[in-house]
Design a protein around this nucleic acid. Structure first.
Length: 442
DNA sequence: TTAGCCTTGAGA
DNA sequence: TCTCAAGGCTAA
């Protein structure tokens, strides 16, 4: 088949990396994976992997394990329902508008990259820059036989019948169907928004739905800290730093709570969930703190998650040089976020970009995480182009802010580690467990 | 069984 | 009429 679209020709098949020949069953794939997917579904084939269901699938190995190849087809988003039960030839199906939209988005992306002199692409690579140097590789021995985070994640997984360790029915519960339905369904969109309102990608709407209610979180954390206060006072008056650590600990619990209820994340096995959270907890924490300040809007004070305001001058009075430097870097990044007037939709997308870091390795669902990362980038780009069409480089600026956020959170982790080693961080909490993830890599 | 090429036909 | 994503065919 001949293809005129320059964008398509440069794409590689997400299943095996071969050249794509067009849109097949939901996405751009090569001719062989198209045929393989069609044969498998039409003939209702069942494959069994002779290895550990993690066989490498590329152009040279794709014939070795049809089981893993088919799993990969599903994970990257090939749609079972696009294979016709009646085997009717020719014509078009309901995916037509989806392909059209995808093409338009790719062309917009390409135009944007050209306009920015490929700045966007460079920034995009920063999003997936290697973060494994701070990744956690195992639980901290001695202190927590079962890490707090693992217990927290397991509690939810075991109580949620929707979460399965295996895809018992590929037609009903595949990760692919979750991906596809949320990435492309437009019914809700059309019902919710009038034609005058800029289009909001379905994924962004879904992310907003997952986002916790700020007021509720404020009440919960404030109530928890209040309850704990009496026990702290028995051990002597807590320092301001100790109070901040306990507050950060509660924020971390909220972050884990948010993650485990999130679309995509709840599809992962607990081991993968832990690895992803261990990698990004500090980034999510710093983003949460900074975006609260964006909404707060006052330069002279810091708004805490409990609703309390702390004057920056008061922070400066007890800050050591390292903390003062951290605060200054935070202020600089905050100024950039203020300048962009970053909105909640963009922040929820950034949270997903942080959480689904494909550079965290090894993951059992690596292709799935990569696919989510790409989809979130696409949704954020589409949102910025539709909502702020006058700022074509907004997407790139957001990614640069994310890169700075990562650098800042690494500094914050280092600072906390030093404080912990000098015995100034309260023990027996989630924050300590996350900190040990950092120490385990040093 | 695979994968490249061919045929078909609804929608733009 | 053209496009292009379905299914079909067939040599390897």
């Amino acid at each position: 088949m001949e293809y005129r679209c320059e964008v398509d020709l440069e794409e590689l098949c997400p299943v095996c990396g071969d050249k794509v020949s067009g849109y097949h069953y939901g996405l751009l794939t090569c001719e062989s994976c198209k045929g393989f997917f069609k044969r498998t579904v039409q003939n209702n084939k069942k494959y069994i992997c002779a290895e550990n269901q993690d066989c490498k699938i590329d152009k040279t190995h794709r014939k070795r394990c049809p089981s893993c190849r088919f799993q990969k087809c599903l994970i990257v988003g090939m749609r079972l329902e696009a294979v016709r039960a009646d085997r009717m030839r020719g014509g078009r199906n309901k995916f037509g508008p989806m392909y059209k939209r995808d093409r338009a988005l790719k062309q917009q992306k390409r135009a944007l990259m050209r306009a920015n002199g490929f700045k966007t692409e460079a920034a995009a690579s920063l999003v997936s820059s290697n973060q494994t140097d701070s990744a956690f590789t195992g639980s901290f021995p001695g202190l927590y036989p079962v890490p707090i985070i693992q217990t927290t994640l397991r509690q939810y997984t075991s109580s949620n019948p929707a979460i399965k360790s295996e895809h018992t029915d590929i037609h009903m519960s595949s990760q692919a169907s979750v991906l596809g339905d949320h990435a492309y369904s437009e019914e809700l969109q059309e019902e919710t928004f009038s034609p005058q309102v800029p289009r909001m990608p379905q994924l962004v709407m879904e992310f907003l739905r997952c986002d916790p209610d700020e007021l509720q979180m404020q009440r919960n954390i404030a109530a928890h800290l209040q309850r704990e206060q009496s026990s702290w006072e028995k051990q002597g008056k807590p320092t301001a730093f100790s109070f901040m650590c306990r507050m950060a600990d509660q924020m971390l619990f909220s972050i884990v709570e948010w993650a485990r209820r999130c679309i995509f994340f709840k599809e992962l096995k607990v081991s993968d969930q832990m690895k992803l959270l261990h990698n990004c907890w500090s980034e999510l924490l710093v983003l949460d703190i900074l975006f609260r300040q964006v909404q707060h809007g006052k330069r002279s004070s810091v708004l805490l998650v409990t609703g309390q305001e702390v004057e920056l001058s008061a922070v400066a009075s007890y800050a050591d040089p390292t903390l003062a430097h951290l605060v200054q870097r935070g202020q600089e990044l905050l100024e950039k976020l203020h300048g962009l007037q970053v909105d909640r939709q963009e922040v929820v997308c950034i949270k997903f970009l942080i959480l689904f870091n494909p550079d965290v390795k090894p993951l059992e669902s690596q292709p799935f995480v990569e696919s989510v990362q790409e989809q979130v980038q696409g949704a954020l780009l589409e949102y910025t182009l539709c909502t702020y069409p006058q700022y074509l480089d907004r997407f790139g600026h957001l990614l640069l802010c994310l890169s700075e956020l990562r650098s800042l959170s690494t500094l914050a982790e280092d600072y906390l580690c030093c404080k912990h080693l000098s015995g100034e961080v309260p023990c027996n909490n989630l924050l300590i467990e996350m900190l040990h993830a950092k120490l385990a890599c040093m």
